[in-house]
Design a protein around this nucleic acid. Structure first.
Lengths: 119, 119
DNA sequence: CGGCTATATCGACGAATGTCAATCTATTGC
DNA sequence: GCAATAGATTGACATTCGTCGATATAGCCG
């Protein structure tokens, strides 16, 4: 498996000191790298549009064929962006037959907001 | 002046439809680019550590000389990262005498969280 | 099986990014 | 004015990133 997805490994258990404004040591290099991975995944306009489309979908999921059109990108490029979002722990991929359906990982965006408030 | 900082130009007036879960059109290309700028600024481990240090500071501000040490980066590189964070609307820069003090823009990180929840 | 369709992977290429050494600017203090 | 100091800017370089065309994989259907 090699590398775990950043959002699953980030503060899985809530830090008990979260509500105590004690002097926090600055982010370690490793923590910073982990958290930067999530923001890197969000740091592309086309990936933000992908998320926006997936989130807006009634069914909560979209297949790749529904995503290539609106983005004006080639199919390989869309697949590439989706992979990055999955590896960041933001999207979930489920293959059913020939189609691959992508959906928001529940709470993933809230977790990102948590990174921000926890600095 | 040319380019405005992304966080100031983002949803300055609250969208009245914010609380109505109506069918939102997917992010436009321009909106997506604007919002991606903010995440780009956060998508670097050293910039996250800079934010962490500035936020942890008692006085609410830090000068560059306090930031070069912990990061193990050259002074020009730190200056460069700080500039990116300022341009993204996340940090504020105030020059007093020879020193430059950087502080978090109040509410900036909350605004980023708002981008996430608004998709 | 053989063709068809949906998606993923690969290899290449140009653009953007992070870093540094060197230099420039501006402020302080003698 | 001059030297010293804090910080910003510039130019160069290696690395990473976004995109594409071509190809590979895998499930469906005749």
């Amino acid at each position: 498996m090699g590398v775990m997805n950043p959002l699953q490994t980030l503060d899985a258990a809530v830090d008990p000191s979260c509500c105590v404004p004690s002097a926090k040591p600055a982010l370690s290099v490793e923590e910073a790298q982990q958290k930067a991975l999530v923001f890197k995944a969000l740091a592309d306009p086309n990936r933000l549009r992908l998320l926006s489309i997936v989130k807006a979908e009634e069914a909560g999921e979209s297949c790749v064929c529904d995503l290539t059109g609106p983005l004006d990108l080639g199919q390989p490029t869309v697949s590439h962006h989706l992979k990055i979002l999955v590896e960041a722990g933001i999207l979930h991929r489920e293959k059913r037959g020939t189609w691959a359906y992508y959906s928001l990982v529940p709470g993933a965006l809230d977790d990102v907001a948590g990174i921000l408030s926890g600095l």
